[in-house]
Write a protein that binds this DNA or RNA. Sequence first.
DNA 1: TTTTGTATAATTGTATACAATCGTACAATG
DNA 2: CATTGTACGATTGTATACAATTATACAAAA
Lengths: 230, 230
Amino acid sequence: MGKLKTLEENGTAPLQVRVFEEIERAILSGEFGSGESLAELKLSSELGVSRTPVREALRQLELEGLVKIIPNKGAVVVGVTEKDIEDIYVIRMRMEDLAVRWAAGSMTAEDAKALWDIVELQEFYAQKGDTERLCEMDGAFHEAIYCFSRSKPLNHMLTGFHHYIRHARSVSFKASGRAQASVGEHRAIAEALSHRDGEEAARLMVDHIEKAKENLLKAFKQQEGKDDIF
Amino acid sequence: MGKLKTLEENGTAPLQVRVFEEIERAILSGEFGSGESLAELKLSSELGVSRTPVREALRQLELEGLVKIIPNKGAVVVGVTEKDIEDIYVIRMRMEDLAVRWAAGSMTAEDAKALWDIVELQEFYAQKGDTERLCEMDGAFHEAIYCFSRSKPLNHMLTGFHHYIRHARSVSFKASGRAQASVGEHRAIAEALSHRDGEEAARLMVDHIEKAKENLLKAFKQQEGKDDIF
DNA sequence: TTTTGTATAATTGTATACAATCGTACAATG
DNA sequence: CATTGTACGATTGTATACAATTATACAAAA
Protein backbone atom coordinates (compact mmCIF):
# COMPACT_ATOMS: atom_id res chain seq x y z
CA MET A 1 0.00 0.00 0.00
CA GLY A 2 1.82 3.04 -1.24
CA LYS A 3 1.44 6.60 -0.09
CA LEU A 4 1.25 9.39 -2.63
CA LYS A 5 2.69 12.83 -2.21
CA THR A 6 0.43 15.77 -2.84
CA LEU A 7 0.88 17.19 -6.30
CA GLU A 8 2.96 20.30 -6.90
CA GLU A 9 0.50 22.98 -5.81
CA ASN A 10 1.72 25.87 -7.92
CA GLY A 11 2.45 23.72 -10.92
CA THR A 12 1.37 25.21 -14.21
CA ALA A 13 1.51 21.91 -16.06
CA PRO A 14 -1.77 20.13 -16.79
CA LEU A 15 -3.08 17.98 -13.95
CA GLN A 16 -2.85 14.89 -16.08
CA VAL A 17 0.88 15.36 -16.49
CA ARG A 18 1.45 15.91 -12.78
CA VAL A 19 -0.66 12.89 -11.90
CA PHE A 20 1.31 10.80 -14.39
CA GLU A 21 4.63 11.89 -12.92
CA GLU A 22 3.51 11.30 -9.35
CA ILE A 23 2.24 7.77 -9.99
CA GLU A 24 5.35 7.01 -12.04
CA ARG A 25 7.55 8.23 -9.22
CA ALA A 26 5.64 6.15 -6.70
CA ILE A 27 6.07 3.01 -8.79
CA LEU A 28 9.75 3.59 -9.62
CA SER A 29 10.60 4.31 -6.00
CA GLY A 30 8.87 1.14 -4.89
CA GLU A 31 6.04 2.82 -2.98
CA PHE A 32 3.64 0.82 -5.09
CA GLY A 33 4.68 -2.81 -5.05
CA SER A 34 4.46 -5.13 -8.01
CA GLY A 35 1.04 -6.65 -8.42
CA GLU A 36 -0.69 -3.97 -6.40
CA SER A 37 -3.94 -2.92 -8.04
CA LEU A 38 -4.60 0.73 -8.71
CA ALA A 39 -8.26 1.75 -8.54
CA GLU A 40 -9.04 4.98 -10.35
CA LEU A 41 -11.39 6.31 -7.68
CA LYS A 42 -8.95 5.60 -4.88
CA LEU A 43 -6.08 7.28 -6.70
CA SER A 44 -8.17 10.27 -7.67
CA SER A 45 -9.40 10.86 -4.13
CA GLU A 46 -5.90 10.44 -2.71
CA LEU A 47 -4.53 12.95 -5.19
CA GLY A 48 -7.49 15.25 -4.87
CA VAL A 49 -8.45 15.24 -8.53
CA SER A 50 -11.17 13.68 -10.64
CA ARG A 51 -10.91 10.32 -12.36
CA THR A 52 -10.26 11.80 -15.80
CA PRO A 53 -6.61 12.82 -15.38
CA VAL A 54 -5.96 9.63 -13.43
CA ARG A 55 -7.30 7.50 -16.26
CA GLU A 56 -5.20 9.34 -18.81
CA ALA A 57 -2.12 8.88 -16.66
CA LEU A 58 -2.75 5.15 -16.19
CA ARG A 59 -3.16 4.66 -19.94
CA GLN A 60 0.21 6.31 -20.49
CA LEU A 61 1.86 4.29 -17.77
CA GLU A 62 0.65 1.16 -19.51
CA LEU A 63 2.46 2.20 -22.68
CA GLU A 64 5.60 2.73 -20.62
CA GLY A 65 5.19 -0.77 -19.26
CA LEU A 66 4.84 0.28 -15.63
CA VAL A 67 1.25 -0.92 -15.24
CA LYS A 68 -0.90 -3.47 -16.97
CA ILE A 69 -4.52 -2.62 -17.68
CA ILE A 70 -7.04 -5.42 -17.88
CA PRO A 71 -10.21 -4.16 -19.60
CA ASN A 72 -13.14 -3.72 -17.24
CA LYS A 73 -10.98 -4.87 -14.38
CA GLY A 74 -8.44 -2.21 -13.70
CA ALA A 75 -4.75 -1.47 -13.51
CA VAL A 76 -2.08 -3.43 -11.67
CA VAL A 77 1.49 -2.32 -11.03
CA VAL A 78 4.12 -4.12 -13.08
CA GLY A 79 7.12 -2.48 -11.48
CA VAL A 80 10.82 -2.69 -12.13
CA THR A 81 13.02 -5.56 -11.03
CA GLU A 82 16.76 -5.56 -10.44
CA LYS A 83 17.16 -7.67 -13.58
CA ASP A 84 15.29 -5.05 -15.58
CA ILE A 85 17.79 -2.43 -14.47
CA GLU A 86 20.73 -4.69 -15.31
CA ASP A 87 19.29 -5.38 -18.75
CA ILE A 88 18.83 -1.69 -19.38
CA TYR A 89 22.48 -1.03 -18.62
CA VAL A 90 23.55 -3.69 -21.12
CA ILE A 91 21.20 -2.20 -23.69
CA ARG A 92 22.50 1.27 -22.95
CA MET A 93 26.08 0.16 -23.52
CA ARG A 94 25.22 -0.79 -27.06
CA MET A 95 22.94 2.10 -27.78
CA GLU A 96 24.99 4.90 -26.29
CA ASP A 97 27.91 3.50 -28.22
CA LEU A 98 25.83 4.20 -31.30
CA ALA A 99 24.69 7.56 -29.97
CA VAL A 100 28.20 8.96 -29.46
CA ARG A 101 29.31 7.69 -32.86
CA TRP A 102 26.42 9.44 -34.56
CA ALA A 103 26.88 12.52 -32.42
CA ALA A 104 30.59 12.64 -33.30
CA GLY A 105 29.64 12.69 -36.95
CA SER A 106 27.41 15.74 -36.66
CA MET A 107 28.65 17.73 -33.67
CA THR A 108 28.65 21.48 -34.16
CA ALA A 109 30.68 23.99 -32.20
CA GLU A 110 27.53 24.99 -30.31
CA ASP A 111 26.85 21.36 -29.42
CA ALA A 112 30.35 21.01 -28.02
CA LYS A 113 29.99 24.18 -26.01
CA ALA A 114 26.66 23.05 -24.56
CA LEU A 115 28.30 19.79 -23.54
CA TRP A 116 31.19 21.56 -21.86
CA ASP A 117 28.76 23.82 -20.00
CA ILE A 118 27.14 20.74 -18.52
CA VAL A 119 30.48 19.22 -17.56
CA GLU A 120 31.55 22.43 -15.86
CA LEU A 121 28.30 22.60 -13.92
CA GLN A 122 28.90 19.02 -12.88
CA GLU A 123 32.35 19.89 -11.60
CA PHE A 124 30.88 22.82 -9.72
CA TYR A 125 28.27 20.69 -7.97
CA ALA A 126 30.86 18.00 -7.34
CA GLN A 127 32.97 20.49 -5.40
CA LYS A 128 29.92 21.63 -3.47
CA GLY A 129 28.97 18.04 -2.79
CA ASP A 130 25.43 18.65 -4.05
CA THR A 131 24.55 15.07 -4.99
CA GLU A 132 21.04 15.94 -6.06
CA ARG A 133 22.13 18.43 -8.72
CA LEU A 134 25.04 16.24 -9.65
CA CYS A 135 22.61 13.49 -10.48
CA GLU A 136 20.54 15.88 -12.57
CA MET A 137 23.57 17.04 -14.50
CA ASP A 138 24.68 13.48 -15.11
CA GLY A 139 21.32 12.91 -16.72
CA ALA A 140 21.58 16.14 -18.70
CA PHE A 141 24.96 15.10 -20.07
CA HIS A 142 23.71 11.83 -21.47
CA GLU A 143 20.49 13.34 -22.79
CA ALA A 144 22.46 16.03 -24.57
CA ILE A 145 24.36 13.34 -26.43
CA TYR A 146 21.12 11.57 -27.30
CA CYS A 147 19.99 14.84 -28.79
CA PHE A 148 23.24 15.42 -30.70
CA SER A 149 22.90 12.01 -32.31
CA ARG A 150 20.23 13.67 -34.48
CA SER A 151 18.21 10.47 -34.39
CA LYS A 152 14.62 10.75 -33.22
CA PRO A 153 14.16 7.00 -32.60
CA LEU A 154 17.46 6.64 -30.75
CA ASN A 155 16.83 9.75 -28.68
CA HIS A 156 13.30 8.70 -27.86
CA MET A 157 14.32 5.22 -26.77
CA LEU A 158 17.29 6.24 -24.65
CA THR A 159 15.39 9.08 -23.03
CA GLY A 160 12.70 6.59 -22.09
CA PHE A 161 15.20 4.26 -20.48
CA HIS A 162 16.83 7.13 -18.68
CA HIS A 163 13.49 8.02 -17.19
CA TYR A 164 12.95 4.44 -16.22
CA ILE A 165 16.17 4.10 -14.25
CA ARG A 166 16.18 7.60 -12.82
CA HIS A 167 15.38 6.44 -9.33
CA ALA A 168 17.91 3.63 -9.42
CA ARG A 169 20.60 6.06 -10.56
CA SER A 170 19.71 8.42 -7.75
CA VAL A 171 20.05 5.63 -5.19
CA SER A 172 23.36 4.62 -6.69
CA PHE A 173 24.77 8.14 -6.70
CA LYS A 174 23.87 8.86 -3.12
CA ALA A 175 25.32 5.59 -1.89
CA SER A 176 28.93 6.14 -2.94
CA GLY A 177 31.52 8.45 -4.40
CA ARG A 178 30.49 7.40 -7.87
CA ALA A 179 29.07 10.79 -8.72
CA GLN A 180 32.50 12.38 -8.45
CA ALA A 181 34.26 9.74 -10.52
CA SER A 182 31.58 10.12 -13.19
CA VAL A 183 32.53 13.73 -13.86
CA GLY A 184 36.04 12.84 -15.02
CA GLU A 185 34.72 10.23 -17.39
CA HIS A 186 32.24 12.72 -18.80
CA ARG A 187 35.07 15.17 -19.35
CA ALA A 188 37.00 12.60 -21.34
CA ILE A 189 33.97 11.79 -23.45
CA ALA A 190 33.31 15.47 -24.10
CA GLU A 191 36.95 15.82 -25.12
CA ALA A 192 36.70 13.01 -27.64
CA LEU A 193 33.41 14.35 -29.00
CA SER A 194 34.87 17.84 -29.38
CA HIS A 195 37.50 16.32 -31.65
CA ARG A 196 34.75 14.35 -33.37
CA ASP A 197 36.55 11.13 -32.54
CA GLY A 198 33.63 8.71 -32.51
CA GLU A 199 35.76 5.62 -32.01
CA GLU A 200 37.42 6.94 -28.87
CA ALA A 201 34.18 8.45 -27.54
CA ALA A 202 32.44 5.10 -27.95
CA ARG A 203 35.22 3.27 -26.14
CA LEU A 204 35.04 5.73 -23.25
CA MET A 205 31.27 5.69 -23.14
CA VAL A 206 30.99 1.90 -22.96
CA ASP A 207 33.58 1.88 -20.21
CA HIS A 208 31.70 4.65 -18.40
CA ILE A 209 28.38 2.81 -18.46
CA GLU A 210 30.04 -0.45 -17.43
CA LYS A 211 31.44 1.26 -14.34
CA ALA A 212 28.11 2.90 -13.58
CA LYS A 213 26.44 -0.49 -13.82
CA GLU A 214 28.92 -2.12 -11.45
CA ASN A 215 28.50 0.68 -8.96
CA LEU A 216 24.75 0.43 -9.16
CA LEU A 217 24.75 -3.30 -8.48
CA LYS A 218 27.11 -2.77 -5.56
CA ALA A 219 24.73 -0.19 -4.12
CA PHE A 220 21.88 -2.66 -4.46
CA LYS A 221 23.75 -5.37 -2.60
CA GLN A 222 24.65 -2.97 0.20
CA GLN A 223 21.13 -1.91 1.01
CA GLU A 224 19.55 -5.26 0.34
CA GLY A 225 16.61 -5.73 2.65
CA LYS A 226 16.39 -2.08 3.61
CA ASP A 227 13.72 -1.34 1.05
CA ASP A 228 11.06 -3.40 -0.69
CA ILE A 229 12.50 -3.27 -4.17
CA PHE A 230 15.79 -1.44 -4.25
CA MET B 1 -6.16 16.16 -44.38
CA GLY B 2 -6.46 12.46 -43.62
CA LYS B 3 -9.50 10.29 -43.76
CA LEU B 4 -10.26 7.87 -40.96
CA LYS B 5 -11.76 4.48 -41.37
CA THR B 6 -14.75 3.59 -39.25
CA LEU B 7 -13.78 1.63 -36.19
CA GLU B 8 -14.18 -2.13 -36.06
CA GLU B 9 -17.93 -2.36 -35.41
CA ASN B 10 -18.06 -5.67 -33.60
CA GLY B 11 -14.87 -5.07 -31.70
CA THR B 12 -14.98 -6.10 -28.07
CA ALA B 13 -11.93 -4.05 -27.14
CA PRO B 14 -12.48 -0.75 -25.33
CA LEU B 15 -13.22 2.19 -27.59
CA GLN B 16 -10.12 3.98 -26.41
CA VAL B 17 -7.93 1.16 -27.68
CA ARG B 18 -9.63 1.05 -31.06
CA VAL B 19 -9.40 4.82 -31.40
CA PHE B 20 -5.71 4.65 -30.53
CA GLU B 21 -5.04 2.00 -33.13
CA GLU B 22 -6.99 3.81 -35.82
CA ILE B 23 -5.22 7.13 -35.34
CA GLU B 24 -1.88 5.34 -35.12
CA ARG B 25 -2.60 3.53 -38.36
CA ALA B 26 -3.61 6.76 -40.05
CA ILE B 27 -0.37 8.45 -39.01
CA LEU B 28 1.91 5.53 -39.88
CA SER B 29 0.31 5.10 -43.28
CA GLY B 30 0.75 8.78 -44.03
CA GLU B 31 -2.94 9.69 -44.08
CA PHE B 32 -2.17 12.33 -41.50
CA GLY B 33 0.77 14.38 -42.68
CA SER B 34 3.50 15.72 -40.43
CA GLY B 35 2.55 18.97 -38.77
CA GLU B 36 -1.16 18.44 -39.24
CA SER B 37 -3.06 19.42 -36.12
CA LEU B 38 -5.50 16.99 -34.56
CA ALA B 39 -8.47 18.62 -32.85
CA GLU B 40 -10.19 16.39 -30.33
CA LEU B 41 -13.71 17.38 -31.31
CA LYS B 42 -13.05 16.86 -35.01
CA LEU B 43 -11.54 13.43 -34.44
CA SER B 44 -14.30 12.37 -32.10
CA SER B 45 -17.06 13.36 -34.49
CA GLU B 46 -15.29 11.69 -37.41
CA LEU B 47 -14.90 8.49 -35.42
CA GLY B 48 -18.37 8.72 -33.92
CA VAL B 49 -17.25 8.68 -30.31
CA SER B 50 -16.95 11.21 -27.52
CA ARG B 51 -13.85 13.21 -26.73
CA THR B 52 -12.82 11.06 -23.78
CA PRO B 53 -11.43 8.05 -25.64
CA VAL B 54 -9.86 10.37 -28.23
CA ARG B 55 -8.04 12.30 -25.53
CA GLU B 56 -6.74 9.11 -23.95
CA ALA B 57 -5.55 7.88 -27.33
CA LEU B 58 -3.77 11.15 -28.13
CA ARG B 59 -1.96 11.08 -24.77
CA GLN B 60 -0.70 7.60 -25.54
CA LEU B 61 0.35 8.54 -29.03
CA GLU B 62 2.41 11.34 -27.54
CA LEU B 63 4.32 8.83 -25.43
CA GLU B 64 4.97 6.82 -28.58
CA GLY B 65 6.33 9.94 -30.21
CA LEU B 66 3.78 10.04 -33.01
CA VAL B 67 2.15 13.28 -31.91
CA LYS B 68 3.25 16.24 -29.86
CA ILE B 69 0.82 17.78 -27.43
CA ILE B 70 1.17 21.45 -26.57
CA PRO B 71 -0.80 22.22 -23.39
CA ASN B 72 -3.98 24.20 -24.01
CA LYS B 73 -3.22 24.22 -27.70
CA GLY B 74 -3.68 20.74 -29.01
CA ALA B 75 -1.98 17.86 -30.73
CA VAL B 76 0.07 17.94 -33.92
CA VAL B 77 1.26 14.97 -35.92
CA VAL B 78 4.97 14.25 -35.69
CA GLY B 79 5.04 11.42 -38.17
CA VAL B 80 7.77 9.12 -39.35
CA THR B 81 10.46 10.07 -41.83
CA GLU B 82 12.51 7.81 -44.06
CA LYS B 83 15.55 8.56 -41.90
CA ASP B 84 13.62 7.42 -38.81
CA ILE B 85 13.01 4.08 -40.46
CA GLU B 86 16.65 3.75 -41.47
CA ASP B 87 17.78 4.56 -37.95
CA ILE B 88 15.42 1.98 -36.53
CA TYR B 89 16.93 -0.70 -38.75
CA VAL B 90 20.43 0.16 -37.54
CA ILE B 91 19.20 0.09 -33.95
CA ARG B 92 17.46 -3.21 -34.57
CA MET B 93 20.65 -4.76 -35.91
CA ARG B 94 22.35 -4.13 -32.61
CA MET B 95 19.40 -4.97 -30.41
CA GLU B 96 18.23 -8.13 -32.15
CA ASP B 97 21.82 -9.27 -32.07
CA LEU B 98 21.49 -9.02 -28.31
CA ALA B 99 18.03 -10.59 -28.33
CA VAL B 100 19.08 -13.77 -30.14
CA ARG B 101 22.14 -14.13 -27.91
CA TRP B 102 20.00 -13.91 -24.80
CA ALA B 103 17.35 -16.15 -26.32
CA ALA B 104 19.97 -18.75 -27.23
CA GLY B 105 21.03 -18.83 -23.61
CA SER B 106 17.58 -19.65 -22.28
CA MET B 107 15.70 -21.40 -25.10
CA THR B 108 13.54 -24.31 -23.99
CA ALA B 109 12.31 -27.13 -26.17
CA GLU B 110 8.86 -25.52 -26.19
CA ASP B 111 10.33 -22.22 -27.33
CA ALA B 112 12.10 -23.94 -30.21
CA LYS B 113 8.92 -25.72 -31.21
CA ALA B 114 6.93 -22.49 -31.16
CA LEU B 115 9.55 -20.90 -33.39
CA TRP B 116 9.44 -23.78 -35.86
CA ASP B 117 5.65 -23.58 -35.95
CA ILE B 118 5.92 -19.98 -37.05
CA VAL B 119 8.52 -20.79 -39.69
CA GLU B 120 6.37 -23.58 -41.09
CA LEU B 121 3.35 -21.30 -41.25
CA GLN B 122 5.52 -18.79 -43.09
CA GLU B 123 6.52 -21.41 -45.62
CA PHE B 124 2.88 -22.34 -46.05
CA TYR B 125 1.81 -18.77 -46.77
CA ALA B 126 4.85 -18.28 -48.98
CA GLN B 127 3.69 -21.18 -51.19
CA LYS B 128 0.19 -19.73 -51.27
CA GLY B 129 1.57 -16.30 -52.06
CA ASP B 130 -0.44 -14.71 -49.24
CA THR B 131 1.73 -11.65 -48.66
CA GLU B 132 -0.52 -10.25 -45.97
CA ARG B 133 -0.21 -13.29 -43.72
CA LEU B 134 3.42 -13.67 -44.62
CA CYS B 135 4.07 -10.21 -43.28
CA GLU B 136 2.20 -11.06 -40.09
CA MET B 137 4.23 -14.21 -39.59
CA ASP B 138 7.45 -12.35 -40.21
CA GLY B 139 6.47 -10.07 -37.35
CA ALA B 140 5.48 -13.00 -35.18
CA PHE B 141 8.88 -14.64 -35.72
CA HIS B 142 10.81 -11.64 -34.52
CA GLU B 143 8.46 -10.96 -31.62
CA ALA B 144 8.78 -14.56 -30.50
CA ILE B 145 12.52 -14.09 -30.22
CA TYR B 146 12.03 -10.83 -28.30
CA CYS B 147 9.93 -12.85 -25.90
CA PHE B 148 12.45 -15.69 -25.61
CA SER B 149 15.16 -13.20 -24.66
CA ARG B 150 13.44 -13.12 -21.27
CA SER B 151 14.16 -9.46 -20.99
CA LYS B 152 11.24 -7.15 -20.32
CA PRO B 153 13.04 -3.95 -21.33
CA LEU B 154 14.47 -5.44 -24.51
CA ASN B 155 11.16 -7.00 -25.45
CA HIS B 156 9.25 -3.81 -24.75
CA MET B 157 11.61 -1.67 -26.79
CA LEU B 158 11.83 -3.94 -29.80
CA THR B 159 8.10 -4.57 -29.84
CA GLY B 160 7.58 -0.82 -29.86
CA PHE B 161 9.88 -0.37 -32.84
CA HIS B 162 8.25 -3.24 -34.64
CA HIS B 163 4.91 -1.51 -34.25
CA TYR B 164 6.42 1.69 -35.48
CA ILE B 165 7.74 0.26 -38.73
CA ARG B 166 4.85 -2.12 -39.36
CA HIS B 167 3.50 -0.11 -42.26
CA ALA B 168 6.90 0.37 -43.82
CA ARG B 169 7.54 -3.37 -43.62
CA SER B 170 4.21 -4.07 -45.24
CA VAL B 171 5.02 -1.74 -48.12
CA SER B 172 8.42 -3.35 -48.52
CA PHE B 173 7.06 -6.88 -48.52
CA LYS B 174 4.41 -6.21 -51.09
CA ALA B 175 6.81 -4.46 -53.43
CA SER B 176 9.16 -7.35 -54.06
CA GLY B 177 9.98 -11.00 -53.56
CA ARG B 178 11.62 -10.18 -50.27
CA ALA B 179 8.96 -11.99 -48.25
CA GLN B 180 9.94 -15.30 -49.78
CA ALA B 181 13.66 -14.81 -49.25
CA SER B 182 13.00 -13.89 -45.65
CA VAL B 183 11.61 -17.32 -44.86
CA GLY B 184 14.87 -19.09 -45.61
CA GLU B 185 16.80 -16.71 -43.39
CA HIS B 186 14.32 -17.26 -40.60
CA ARG B 187 14.77 -20.99 -40.96
CA ALA B 188 18.52 -20.64 -40.58
CA ILE B 189 18.12 -18.49 -37.49
CA ALA B 190 15.66 -20.95 -35.97
CA GLU B 191 18.16 -23.71 -36.69
CA ALA B 192 20.95 -21.89 -34.87
CA LEU B 193 18.69 -21.06 -31.95
CA SER B 194 17.54 -24.66 -31.66
CA HIS B 195 21.18 -25.61 -31.16
CA ARG B 196 21.52 -22.69 -28.76
CA ASP B 197 24.30 -21.28 -30.88
CA GLY B 198 24.02 -17.60 -30.01
CA GLU B 199 27.08 -16.55 -31.97
CA GLU B 200 25.82 -18.03 -35.22
CA ALA B 201 22.26 -16.87 -34.63
CA ALA B 202 23.47 -13.31 -34.07
CA ARG B 203 25.54 -13.38 -37.25
CA LEU B 204 22.55 -14.60 -39.26
CA MET B 205 20.18 -12.13 -37.63
CA VAL B 206 22.34 -9.09 -38.33
CA ASP B 207 22.70 -10.22 -41.92
CA HIS B 208 18.94 -10.78 -42.15
CA ILE B 209 18.09 -7.31 -40.91
CA GLU B 210 20.71 -5.74 -43.14
CA LYS B 211 19.08 -7.35 -46.16
CA ALA B 212 15.61 -6.32 -45.00
CA LYS B 213 16.85 -2.76 -44.65
CA GLU B 214 18.35 -2.69 -48.12
CA ASN B 215 15.16 -4.08 -49.62
CA LEU B 216 13.07 -1.54 -47.76
CA LEU B 217 15.15 1.38 -49.03
CA LYS B 218 14.93 0.02 -52.55
CA ALA B 219 11.14 -0.15 -52.24
CA PHE B 220 11.12 3.46 -51.08
CA LYS B 221 13.15 4.64 -54.05
CA GLN B 222 10.87 2.79 -56.45
CA GLN B 223 7.66 4.38 -55.33
CA GLU B 224 9.15 7.78 -54.63
CA GLY B 225 6.59 10.43 -55.37
CA LYS B 226 3.66 8.04 -55.43
CA ASP B 227 2.71 8.72 -51.84
CA ASP B 228 3.20 11.64 -49.47
CA ILE B 229 5.59 9.97 -47.08
CA PHE B 230 6.49 6.51 -48.23
C1' DT C 1 -0.89 51.87 -41.84
C1' DT C 2 0.38 49.74 -37.74
C1' DT C 3 -0.56 48.63 -33.26
C1' DT C 4 -3.11 47.50 -29.41
C1' DG C 5 -7.08 46.36 -26.76
C1' DT C 6 -11.29 43.92 -26.23
C1' DA C 7 -14.94 40.86 -27.26
C1' DT C 8 -16.04 36.57 -29.01
C1' DA C 9 -15.43 32.03 -30.71
C1' DA C 10 -13.04 27.80 -30.60
C1' DT C 11 -10.40 24.40 -28.18
C1' DT C 12 -8.50 22.16 -24.38
C1' DG C 13 -8.67 20.87 -19.19
C1' DT C 14 -11.31 18.94 -15.60
C1' DA C 15 -15.27 17.20 -13.24
C1' DT C 16 -19.30 14.66 -13.03
C1' DA C 17 -23.14 11.74 -14.57
C1' DC C 18 -24.67 7.65 -16.48
C1' DA C 19 -24.07 2.97 -18.67
C1' DA C 20 -21.85 -1.42 -18.88
C1' DT C 21 -19.26 -4.96 -16.87
C1' DC C 22 -17.36 -7.76 -13.34
C1' DG C 23 -17.03 -9.83 -8.69
C1' DT C 24 -19.21 -11.47 -4.59
C1' DA C 25 -22.58 -12.85 -1.30
C1' DC C 26 -26.32 -15.34 -0.44
C1' DA C 27 -30.33 -17.83 -1.15
C1' DA C 28 -32.74 -21.50 -3.64
C1' DT C 29 -32.48 -26.00 -5.50
C1' DG C 30 -30.68 -30.52 -6.37
C1' DC D 1 -23.24 -30.28 1.21
C1' DA D 2 -22.44 -28.75 -3.40
C1' DT D 3 -24.09 -26.02 -7.15
C1' DT D 4 -26.30 -22.69 -9.55
C1' DG D 5 -28.82 -18.46 -10.12
C1' DT D 6 -29.77 -13.92 -8.88
C1' DA D 7 -29.21 -9.55 -6.86
C1' DC D 8 -26.38 -6.16 -5.27
C1' DG D 9 -22.15 -3.46 -4.91
C1' DA D 10 -17.97 -1.90 -6.77
C1' DT D 11 -15.24 -0.58 -10.66
C1' DT D 12 -14.41 0.61 -15.24
C1' DG D 13 -16.09 2.65 -19.89
C1' DT D 14 -18.15 6.46 -22.15
C1' DA D 15 -20.52 10.72 -22.69
C1' DT D 16 -21.50 15.24 -21.49
C1' DA D 17 -21.26 19.61 -18.92
C1' DC D 18 -18.70 23.30 -17.32
C1' DA D 19 -14.32 25.99 -16.53
C1' DA D 20 -10.07 27.81 -18.22
C1' DT D 21 -7.17 29.01 -21.77
C1' DT D 22 -5.94 30.40 -26.33
C1' DA D 23 -6.75 32.11 -30.97
C1' DT D 24 -9.18 35.33 -33.95
C1' DA D 25 -11.61 39.32 -35.56
C1' DC D 26 -12.35 43.81 -35.44
C1' DA D 27 -12.41 48.35 -33.89
C1' DA D 28 -10.07 52.30 -31.91
C1' DA D 29 -6.02 55.03 -31.34
C1' DA D 30 -1.30 56.40 -32.51
